[in-house]
Structure formats: C-alpha cells, structure tokens
Amino acid sequence: MGIRFNEVSYGYSSFAQGLYTAIKDINLEITEKNEFIALVGHTGSGKSTLAKHMNALIFPTSGTLEIFGHTITNKRNKKIKYNDIRKKVGLVFQFPEYQLFEETVEKDIMFGPMNFKITKEEAKKLAKQSLNLVGLDDSYLSRNPYNLSGGEKKRVSIAGILAMDPDILVLDEPTSGLDPAGKRILMDLFKNINETTGKTIVIITHDMDLVYQYFNRVLVMNDGHLVFDGKTEVLFQKEDLTDYHLDYPNTIKVLKYLNQELNLNMNVFQKTNAEALAEIKRAVRL
C-alpha cells in the first residue's frame, strides 16, 4: 500500500517550450507508515510535479501510479473515487497561507473535513485537535486568519490538512520565509507528528542543514529524473554534488575547510554544531 510510481512520466505542452517533460521514468515507493522523507532538487527539477502526483492531483502522461490500492493512469477512471485518495494523502502547497479564506481559524480548518460527510460537531472537534497538534491553543479558533503572523498562518493551513486525518502528508517547502527558530519549531512539529501518529511525511525543501539533521531518507530530483533515493548520510558522503545541483550542509562545509586549511583529519560528517564541536576537540587533542 502507500504510493508506488511505475515508470511515471509527466509532460505538458507550453507555448514557449513546446512539449516539456517535467518528470521522466520515475520508479518510487513510499510506504504509508512511519516514513519521514525529504524531497530535494533545483528549481524546475520536477519536485513539485512529483508531489502533485502523490494525491492524484495530476495524472501521469505515461506509466502507472498506485495510491492506496487505486491504479492511476493517464485517463480518468470513473470507478475511482478520487476524493478517497485526497483523504488518504494530504498535500500542502507552497505558501499555504494564501489559501486561507474563511473568517475564522475554526471555519477554515473545518472546511476540509466537512467535504468528507461528517457532522459539524465532529468537524469542530477535529479542528480543535489539529490546531493543538500544530502548537496553537484554542484561543486561535475564533481569530481571523488574516490577522495572524506568517508562521501562524502556515500552521493554521497545515492544521486544515491534518484535520482530514490523511495517512500521508506531503508538504511543499513548508519552512520557507520563516526565521531560524520558526523553522526548527515547525520541523520539530512534523517530526513529532510523524513519531506519535506514524503518519508518513514527505517534505520538499532547499535547506540541506534541515535535510541532514531531520531526515533518514532523501529523494533527489534533477532535470526530471529521480537521481537518488536513499539514506541522507550516503548522499552527503558523495564527493561531488554539483551534478545534482545540490550543496552540502554547513557543518560538513566548515569541517572540510578546517581539514584542508590545517591539514587535519577530522570526520566531517557531523550533523549538529555540538557534534562538530566534539569532533574538533577530539582532533586537537590527538
């Protein structure tokens, strides 16, 4: 179960570029429980297109896509209830705060679940639960979403997706535009949701420090191809990431510089500043 891509390609024709293939021959499996996956790649690499397939928001041009037992091809199948898929896999777009539209936070969060035939009372209960899950208290329920800060808006919009109780949550750059503290709070929150509920979470990001510190599995898209699917440690141990248009996390870059300049032999693969510090101290004592 979960999501499986079989030789999936997606192309579209545009005025300027003619026929353009956004993703090519993707084979990928995401299980429905306990995964915490980073999806990275340069702008235009196909990350967002890949993500949009994950809840059948768009259909493959060729290949097949299996989402929780439903087989998606390039044709709309009347037997498939796409609504069921959307309930299983929640997709949070980049800048979800632009999608807030109701007059109170509570109504906004209730909007999603109400589409899935539940009572108003149940939806209210879900709204409250998911608001608390994103770290906001009940006092926010009656507030106007437009008067919240950027970080708060992001959380409310994520709560809106959580309220639909999806098994898999896919988020497109949820931390962009947040200050460092805000980023960490949000990442800790996702990790916590992942660990306490077992929901699989896929996060698109450009921040290699976050990738290194938070994720076990990373997917790298490059020019429409899935060029890496594996452990984060393995990715950053590669000699050169320029082919992937990726950068290294800051701890690795700094330690590599010290090794090179001072002829040291430190193990540069340290995820946190504290670990890097311990490694420096160890190297100096030798």
């Binding site: 200050d179 503290a181 800051n250 701890t251 500043n273 890097a276 510090l277």
Partner: peptide, 15 residues
C-alpha cells in the same frame, strides 16, 4: 533575538 550565528562562528565562540 532568537537568531542563530553561522555554524563556523558558533563553533569559534564555543572553543
């Protein structure tokens, strides 16, 4: 101010 120093300087200050 709830800000973070760059990794290199955070390390430099800690040594």
């Amino acid at each position: 101010s709830h800000l973070e120093l760059p990794v290199s300087l955070d390390l430099a200050n800690a040594l």
